[in-house]
Write a protein that binds this DNA or RNA. Structure first.
Lengths: 234, 234
DNA sequence: TCAGCATAGAGAGCAGTGCTCTCTCTCACC
DNA sequence: GGTGAGAGAGAGCACTGCTCTCTATGCTGA
């Protein structure tokens, strides 16, 4: 982490490589056994080194988990950003919304353990340090930018309730995140869309749709369409 | 679990009581350290018995977790059912919706660890047995019943997209859950409301609204109002 | 009534965990 | 070339889930 500077000598190179190897091994193990069972000793075994040596690179198991967390956030963030930017017609906000939603879902379904690490129960007794914030915000940033673009194009969400003064106060950081700032209706519908998207994903990936929904793909498609309509994107 | 029959003799009584005590101690510990760190030995210590003796009551740590899971589902289910039934005017579906939403959130905020156990990342390497299904369904049942009642009263959700044949197929179990069955629009809006409610709760409780929303209560109030409006309940 | 047996608990033990401490070796810099 | 920082190994501590064996006790059928 701290050694992001260009390696100058053999020792620094070795350190960077081994750090990378530890992260890769840990990531593989994470995908197999989940965050709770991630074991420093197992990583060390995998790399053929003593477990105590791993502590030269990550001061604790939680620090290793945090590194994996940041990597996962960045990986997801990049997937979403790329999906968004692949929509060539930047004015087609509906297409961008669909691309964003499916990018998140595809990423999550491909590696449910990493999704669970990001959006599932927080690892108990451990608060994500501030390092994670920048990476964690990428998806939300992409979403808010999309909404801001849509607003700039004159789109309007469908029938949205007016905000009380208290409610408007509550969402100030969201409103003032983009430039120009979002109107009330966009903030309301945007936050609802955010909750709906991740709520659906969590319910799906964590098994709560078992026996309730027969075809997750079709249902997700429908949900994304409906939210797009509510956002006035279509 | 299996000893739900009325205790007949001293041994059965003692067994029932100790089973209860183990669950209580485990529940307390769960609230303090989270599911991953729930320790059979700590429970045994708390009760002043050998750890091996606990295994006479629960065959494994996972079985103990499952029992806690079922209890939590039932506890939440009962809270929601009671909140719903406390609305005296059964025709006031908007009030019932608000009661339901706030019951879930109040319960979750009062015991976030239990909420995480139910709606957070599934405990890895462990699939919830069928015993949990009945308890897990109570909240969803309350919600679907509410929607069915609203439909029976002639309410209609706002502008809802039509379903393709594929999409209609995907949600068959949900539609046919209530009697009479739900119309397409109710299924669509109902599932979206479900995802929005739990999505918002998870994002809030798992820390994703940190620095984004200043007043969680006000924002939740607003969200519930908006979804109620979309459902055509207001 | 009482022998026999299922049940309950204790304790030791195994294999695993996170993490620390000490020891040794080696690389890099002055 | 000497010196000190960095890196790895290994032992060890306190903990975990779980199993096995041993003993005590309450219940039950003859």
């Amino acid at each position: 982490m701290a050694d992001s500077a260009a390696p100058r000598n053999a020792r620094a190179v070795a350190r960077a490589e081994l750090t990378r190897a530890i992260l890769d091994s840990a990531s593989t193990q994470l995908a197999q056994v989940g965050p709770a069972a991630l074991s420093v000793r197992a990583v060390a075994r995998d790399l053929g080194m003593a477990s105590s040596a791993v502590y030269r690179y990550f001061p604790s198991r939680d620090a290793l988990l945090t590194a994996l967390l940041i990597e996962a956030y960045d990986d997801l963030g990049e997937s979403v950003e790329q999906a968004d930017s692949r929509v060539r017609d930047r004015a087609d906000v509906a297409a961008r919304w669909h691309a964003l939603c499916h990018a998140v879902r595809d990423w999550a379904r491909a590696q449910p353990h990493r999704y669970a690490l990001l959006y599932g129960s927080p690892v108990p007794g451990y608060a994500a340090p501030d390092d994670t914030v920048a990476s964690a915000t990428r998806v939300t940033t992409a979403l808010l930018t999309l909404l801001s673009d849509a607003q700039a194009m004159g789109r309007t969400p469908v029938a949205t309730l007016p905000l009380s003064e208290e409610e408007r106060e509550a969402v100030v950081p969201v409103r003032s995140f983009t430039d120009p700032v979002l109107d009330d209706a966009w903030v309301v519908r945007g936050l609802a869309a955010w909750a709906t998207l991740f709520g659906n994903l969590s319910l799906e990936l964590f098994g709560h749709m078992h026996r309730g929904i027969l075809d997750y793909d079709a249902h997700f498609q429908q949900l994304v369409d409906q939210v797009a309509a509510d956002l006035g994107l279509a």
